[in-house]
Amino acid sequence: MATIHLLGRDFAIAPYKLGELRRAAPYIDNIQRKTDGTGSLTDLMDSAVDLLHVLSIGLVKIDPLLTPDYLEANVSMDEFVGLQTAFLDLSEESGLKRTGEAEAPPAATPAGASSADSPSSSTT
């Protein structure tokens, strides 16, 4: 469960199922498009509102008052970093973000073999 500290309360949001992910997808796409590093304040604010829409999908199941409009009117920028963390946690738990891949093992060398042990091709 992703934990969100918001408006002085803690909320635990369960990983999203397919229907919830489908509803969240347009907002997640917008967030990805607008966080390309340009740094515009308009894009930051748009991303913040999109993030509220995504999180609200899970929050309204806990408290029906936590709609995107309510959150936008009541959430401060001081809470934004925590919301970003909760969004990333929720994305990962819902299967949208990979936690990382294991490194590939080094190429195996047969036991006892080395490049100096190669058989010679001379004929005697």
Rank of each mutant, 00 (worst) to 15 (best):
Asp10Arg: 04
Pro64Gly: 13
Ser120Tyr: 11
Arg98Asn: 10
Tyr16Asp: 06
Ala116Ser: 15
Arg9Leu: 01
Ala12Lys: 09
Asp29Asn: 06
Ala48His: 14
Met45Ala: 12
Ser91Asn: 03
Arg33His: 03
Pro119Tyr: 08
Met45Trp: 06
Lys34Gly: 03
Pro106Asn: 09
Asp89Tyr: 10
Phe87Arg: 00
Thr85Phe: 11
Gly100Thr: 14
Leu6Lys: 06
Lys17Phe: 05
Phe87Leu: 09
His5Lys: 02
Ile57Met: 02
Ser115Pro: 10
Met1Pro: 07
Tyr27Ile: 00
Gly39Glu: 15
Pro26Lys: 12
Leu18Thr: 11
Met45Cys: 15
Arg33Trp: 12
Ala86Ile: 05
Leu59Ser: 10
Leu59Val: 08
Tyr16Ile: 03
Val54Ile: 07
Asn30Trp: 02
Ala24Cys: 02
Lys17Pro: 07
Ile31Asp: 01
Leu52Ile: 06
Asp50Arg: 02
Val81Phe: 07
Glu101Thr: 12
Gly37Lys: 11
Ser114Asn: 02
Val81Pro: 11
Asp43Gly: 00
Met45Thr: 01
Leu41Cys: 13
Asp29Tyr: 11
Met45Asn: 13
Ala12Ile: 02
Lys61Trp: 04
Thr124Trp: 08
Ser114Gly: 05
Ala12Cys: 04
Asp36Gln: 01
Leu18Cys: 07
Val49Gly: 05
Lys34Thr: 05
Leu55Gly: 08
Ser120Gln: 09
Arg98Cys: 00
Thr109Leu: 15
Ser76Asn: 13
Leu18Arg: 03
Asp69Thr: 06
Arg23Met: 05
Asp63Phe: 13
Asp89Ala: 04
Leu90His: 01
Ser40Met: 15
Ala25Tyr: 15
Glu72Thr: 13
Leu44Val: 09
Glu101Asn: 05
Tyr27His: 07
Lys61Gln: 06
Ile4Lys: 10
Leu52His: 08
His5Phe: 00
Arg98His: 08
Ser120Glu: 09
His53Lys: 03
Arg98Glu: 01
His53Ala: 13
Val81Thr: 03
Phe11Pro: 14
His5Pro: 04
Ala73Cys: 08
Ala107Pro: 03
Leu96Pro: 02
Leu6Thr: 08
Arg98Leu: 10
Tyr16Gly: 00
Ile13Gly: 06
Leu96Ala: 07
Ser118His: 09
Ile13Ser: 15
Asn74Met: 04
Leu44Ser: 08
Pro26Gln: 04
Pro110Lys: 11
Ile28Phe: 14
Val81Asn: 02
Met1Glu: 00
Gly58Tyr: 05
Lys97Trp: 09
Thr67Gln: 05
Ser56Glu: 00
Val49Trp: 05
Asp78Lys: 12
Gly37Trp: 11
Pro26Tyr: 02
Ser47Val: 00
Ser91Lys: 12
Pro64Glu: 13
Ala116Leu: 11
Ser121Thr: 15
Ala86Val: 10
Asp117Glu: 06
Ile31Arg: 00
Thr38His: 15
Asn30Ile: 04
Thr109Trp: 11
Ser114Trp: 14
Thr38Asp: 10
Asp46Pro: 01
His53Ile: 02
Ala107Asn: 12
Arg33Leu: 01
Gly8Ala: 01
Thr99Gly: 09
Asn30Cys: 06
Ala104Ser: 11
Ala48Leu: 14
Pro105Tyr: 10
Met1Gln: 00
Thr3Arg: 05
Ile13Ala: 05
